[in-house]
């Protein structure tokens, strides 16, 4: 079976069609509009004008119930915009949930692949998957603690879901390779790492020290994931190119 890095019959570039391509280019020049170059202002102005009139993508739901919410928490939220925190927590929760599913899809990739030395082991992928699940539960509990509904889709959760829909497509496509999927997971982990750091800062600012501490642990996990995944990608890609990869700094820990 062919590998994606083999030379094949890719027909997408103009060099594939030495007879048709010159005709295409000549035709476009003859028939195209005056070649005044792109005037981005017109398009941008239209987008801006419509954006000014548009409703938001959605809003944060009202608190499920303030009954049972600790007085100390209510005091911390007072004077702040609690919806911002809830929106970001909802975003991370949705992201981590999808993260669990992405690593499950990666396990199927692993099982179908011929994994080379320096690549992941099944256990290592399972460990990360379990970390993502633990983070999911941590966030669910944090949201409940604030009296919000962890089953709601907040606006940031929605937007991140749209942005991440391509990741699911790539990971679940039977034609993509383990290496291609690890490459995508590297992006997922880098984004995750940066986002956890933001959440740590936000929790600190609002005075949720205990939560901030737990989020800091999660951030450390995610940093370790990113280092691991980056190592696997580097080993695979450089190995495919026929070179020896330079050893990477080992991750400190995953827990």
């Amino acid at each position: 079976m062919q590998k994606p890095t083999d030379t094949g019959t890719n027909r997408t570039g103009i060099a594939t069609s030495p007879l048709d391509s010159p005709a295409l280019i000549k035709g476009a020049r003859e028939g195209g509009k005056a070649n005044g170059g792109l005037d981005p202002e017109l398009l941008l102005a239209e987008r801006a004008s419509i954006a000014r009139a548009a409703d938001p993508i959605g809003t944060v739901p009202p608190p499920a119930s303030l009954k049972g919410v600790a007085k100390t928490i209510l005091e911390k939220l007072e004077g702040h915009q609690p919806t911002v925190f809830i929106d970001k927590l909802g975003q991370r929760l949705a992201y981590e949930r999808t993260g669990v599913r992405l690593y499950e899809a990666l396990l199927a990739k692993f099982d179908a692949a011929d994994v080379h030395e320096g690549g992941p082991t099944r256990t290592e992928i399972e460990e990360i998957r379990n970390d993502e699940l633990a983070h999911t539960l941590l966030l669910r509990d944090a949201i409940k603690q604030l009296g919000a509904d962890p089953t709601a889709m907040t606006p940031c959760a929605d937007v991140t879901g749209v942005a991440g829909s391509g990741w699911v497509q790539v990971l679940c496509d039977p034609r993509t390779t383990l290496t291609q999927c690890l490459d995508v997971m590297l992006g997922v982990e880098l984004y995750d790492t940066a986002s956890w750091l933001l959440l740590v800062d936000l929790a600190n600012q609002l005075g949720f020290d205990e939560l901030a501490e737990k989020f800091r642990d999660a951030h450390i996990d995610e940093e370790a994931h990113a280092v691991r995944v980056r190592g696997w990608v580097q080993t695979a890609v450089i190995g495919q190119s026929g070179e020896q990869p330079t050893p990477l700094e080992k991750p400190k820990t995953t827990h």
Binding site: S21, A28, L43
Partner: peptide, 23 residues
Amino acid sequence: ELITTAYTYTPGTELVGDGAEVI
């Protein structure tokens, strides 16, 4: 009309300019 203001198709997209030299 808006989307094609001053648009001439160019291989490799109008951002990259003239991809024609490839062939």
